[in-house]
Design a protein around this nucleic acid. Structure first.
Lengths: 150, 150
DNA sequence: TATATTTAGTGCGATATCGTACAAAAAGGT
DNA sequence: ACCTTTTTGTACGATATCGCACTAAATATA
């Protein structure tokens, strides 16, 4: 009789998958027209980490293949949220900058997401969430390294 | 000057997105040929929760749209991992059962994933992971309900 | 019973994701 | 300087995802 009790690791990654699914669906339900959670992620990243980074750096930050990021960025360009300038230090590369519209849209998205987050925040106060972050971040960093090695 | 410091909620969902990305990529790198993390999830679910459930119930469990689950299940059928029988209690519905091959493949997948999990388990012992699960599960359940209401 | 509403699953179309292969530039080795 | 290897971004094709619309069956209502 083989094991049917799942190891906590499977449960963990299963929960993470579902949480990702749910949070994405919930966010996108509140975003305007064709805006996607991936676009939101990029805009947020640019504001937080700083503009002027390259597509590859962004892809690495989100741990998605660079082709995926190319596609996502082209979607942002099509929506007029970002612009791609040549990289003065590397002719192969590009630099990503927010447009004014992109900054504005990001503000709106944050606001929209925040209202949707209200109920959530009531049940899960900031300090409770913050308590989770170190472990999750540590796991992320570990898997990040493992990805290169394994 | 608008806020650039992200709320812990954004960080949380960002980490979850990346963790999902990484764990999926890591798992699929160890799966045979065309097998996908979604297939693995379905097989695992059938073993854990029990066979004979319906496509819709599985879709709800993973919180994906039912069309997505239809597609995933048809992939499993094409790989000979599951079979769909008519639901004796509801002629519209189907019941999902593992095939012998499906059970075998699931065993192999679990083994393959487990070897890849070895390093991870060293750094994150079971009890550390278990300590995280209640909060994550609670969040999942909350968002689950919120999805219907909002 | 007859009709309306809800529910389960699927076909279809649009789009996202991602692996492969590629071109151009950069970096390293001779 | 020349050649090789690595790196950056992209085009392309295959497949996954998912919203919409539909059929058939079940359920609720008149």
């Amino acid at each position: 009789m083989p094991d049917t009790r799942p190891s906590p690791y499977f449960v963990l990654f299963n929960e993470i998958g579902i949480l990702h699914q749910l949070s994405r669906a919930l966010l996108e339900a509140r975003l305007p027209d064709g805006l996607l959670s991936s676009h939101f992620g990029v805009l947020n990243h640019l504001v937080r980490v700083g503009e002027g980074t390259t597509p590859l750096a962004i892809a690495r930050a989100f741990q998605v293949p660079k082709t995926t990021m190319t596609h996502t960025l082209s979607g942002c360009v099509k929506h007029g949220l970002i612009e791609m300038r040549p990289n003065p230090e590397d002719a192969r590369s590009k630099c990503i900058w927010l447009t004014d519209k992109g900054r504005q849209v990001r503000e709106d998205m944050v606001a929209a997401a925040a209202t949707g987050m209200g109920d959530f925040a009531e049940h899960f106060p900031e300090d409770k969430v913050e308590a989770l972050l170190p472990a999750l971040t540590e796991m992320r960093q570990f898997l990040d390294k493992a990805r290169d090695e394994i």
